[in-house]
Simulated scan of single mutants.
Amino acid sequence: MDPVRELRPKAPDSEKITINLGYVDLGHIDLMVEEGFYSNRTDFIRTAIRNQIDRHAEVVRQAVTRKSVDLGLRHFSRGDLEAVREAGQMLDIRVLGLATIAPDVTPDLARATIASLSVLGALHASAAVKSALADRIQ
Rank of each mutant, 00 (worst) to 15 (best):
G88F: 01
N40K: 10
Q89N: 10
V33Y: 12
I45V: 15
G88C: 04
I53R: 06
R66Q: 14
R66D: 13
D43T: 01
I53W: 10
Q52I: 05
R46V: 07
S68A: 14
I53C: 14
G79P: 02
R85W: 11
L98F: 00
G88H: 03
I93S: 12
L96A: 11
D43S: 00
V84C: 02
S77V: 01
A57C: 05
A99R: 05
G97V: 09
L98E: 01
I93F: 15
G88I: 04
V64K: 09
I45C: 04
K67N: 15
A87E: 08
F76W: 08
A83G: 02
A83R: 11
E35G: 07
T65S: 15
S68I: 06
P103L: 13
E35Q: 13
I45K: 00
V64R: 14
F37M: 00
R55T: 12
M90F: 07
V69T: 08
R85P: 07
D80H: 15
I49L: 14
R61V: 00
Q89R: 09
L96I: 10
Y38C: 00
R85I: 10
F37Q: 03
K67Q: 09
V33R: 13
G72P: 01
R94D: 02
I49P: 04
G72T: 02
I49Y: 07
R41M: 12
R66K: 13
S77N: 01
R94G: 08
R85Y: 14
N40E: 06
Q52Y: 03
N51D: 11
G79H: 02
E35V: 03
Q62C: 01
Q89S: 08
G97E: 10
G97P: 12
A48K: 10
L81C: 08
E35T: 05
L73R: 15
R61I: 02
T47H: 12
R55H: 11
F76L: 15
G79V: 04
A63R: 15
E58K: 12
L98M: 02
V60L: 14
M90D: 00
H75A: 01
R61S: 07
T47L: 09
D92K: 06
R78L: 07
Q52H: 05
V60M: 11
Q89T: 02
F76R: 02
A102S: 11
A63T: 12
A99W: 02
E58R: 09
L71V: 11
S77P: 01
R94S: 06
L91R: 15
S68V: 14
I101C: 01
T42R: 06
E86A: 15
S39L: 13
Y38A: 03
V64E: 13
R85Q: 11
R41T: 09
G79L: 10
L96P: 08
R41A: 12
V69H: 03
Y38K: 09
H56E: 15
G72Y: 02
D92V: 09
Y38M: 04
V33T: 03
R46D: 07
L71T: 05
V33N: 04
V59D: 14
K67E: 15
